Simulated scan of single mutants.
Amino acid sequence: MPRLFVSVDLPDRLADAFEAVQEPLRDVESLRFTDPEQAHCTLKFLGDADEARVGDVTEALEAAVASAGRSPTESRTESGGAGVGPVELEVGGLGVFPSTDYVSVVWVGVREGHGAAELARLAETVERETVSLGFDEADHEFTPHFTLARMDDARGKRRVLEYLNEDPTVGRFEVDEIRLTESTLTSDGPEYETRARVPL
């Protein structure tokens, strides 16, 4: 049974810049770092789903893209627009989840005014369309981010919190598609396979 999520993937050309943002924390033993070539922004985690539902999810994502340029009260036929188009993102700035008191994830964000609002609107329509298929509602507010590392314990927490005062930039890129991605957990970490691409 595929384990699925919806993502915007960081382009390969920014992998070195992403790794450079991770580098100052490399000697923090409690951190497990994201492979820069697998870095992505999750719009919606779907979880385990029957293989037969992949087609339905893809159609829901197409509907989400088509409706992302409209308000939630507008029907799909009320607006003649083509929905959201390609979005220019600037990836930069740092944060942690769930809080600075207890750190489990260290991330680099999407800068306000540089695609964050557009990405949030797209995530909102993806949420609405996938929940209508029976998938669980998100239990937290969407924050556009790319995970730098996961923290297993409190060792090095002070180093992480000090690093939050920095303001590194990974770079800019144009998002022209969202992906339905399958995640397979292995002893070497997750392996990702793109199951569908939906253009913006």
Rank of each mutant, 00 (worst) to 15 (best):
P2D: 09
R3E: 03
S7E: 07
S7H: 01
P11D: 07
R13C: 06
A15F: 08
D16P: 06
E19A: 15
E19Q: 14
A20L: 06
V21Y: 02
Q22G: 09
L25T: 06
R26E: 11
D27A: 13
D27V: 11
E29W: 00
L31A: 08
L31W: 06
F33K: 10
T34Q: 11
D35T: 06
P36K: 07
E37M: 08
Q38L: 11
A39G: 12
L46E: 00
L46D: 00
D48C: 00
D50H: 00
E51Y: 05
A52H: 09
A52V: 05
A52T: 13
R53N: 03
R53E: 10
D56Y: 00
T58P: 02
E59W: 05
E59H: 09
A60R: 01
L61P: 03
L61V: 08
A64D: 03
V65I: 11
A68P: 06
A68C: 07
G69H: 08
T73A: 13
T73P: 00
E74S: 13
T77C: 01
E78A: 15
A82D: 14
A82H: 08
G85T: 13
G85K: 12
G85W: 03
P86S: 15
V87R: 07
L89T: 08
E90H: 04
V91P: 07
G92E: 05
G93V: 06
L94Q: 02
L94S: 02
L94V: 02
L94Y: 01
G95Y: 02
V96K: 06
F97H: 03
F97A: 02
P98T: 10
S99V: 10
Y102V: 13
V103Y: 04
V108G: 02
V108K: 04
G109A: 10
E112G: 10
G113K: 11
G115Y: 01
G115A: 12
L119P: 05
A120I: 09
A120Y: 00
R121I: 02
A123K: 05
T125L: 00
T125C: 03
V126D: 01
E127A: 10
R128K: 13
E129M: 07
T130E: 04
V131P: 06
S132N: 13
L133R: 11
G134I: 09
D136K: 15
E137S: 15
A138G: 10
H140D: 09
E141I: 04
E141Q: 12
F142L: 12
H145F: 05
H145S: 06
F146Q: 03
T147S: 13
M151I: 01
D152V: 08
D153C: 01
A154T: 13
R155E: 14
R155C: 00
K157G: 04
R158K: 15
R158Q: 14
V160H: 04
L161R: 09
L161E: 04
E162Q: 14
N165Y: 09
E166H: 12
E166N: 13
D167W: 02
D167Y: 06
P168Q: 12
V170C: 05
V175P: 04
D176N: 14
E177I: 01
E177M: 08
R179A: 10
R179C: 11
L180N: 12
L180I: 12
T181G: 03
E182P: 06
S183Q: 11
T186D: 05
S187W: 01
D188I: 00
P190T: 04
E193K: 12
R195T: 07
A196C: 07
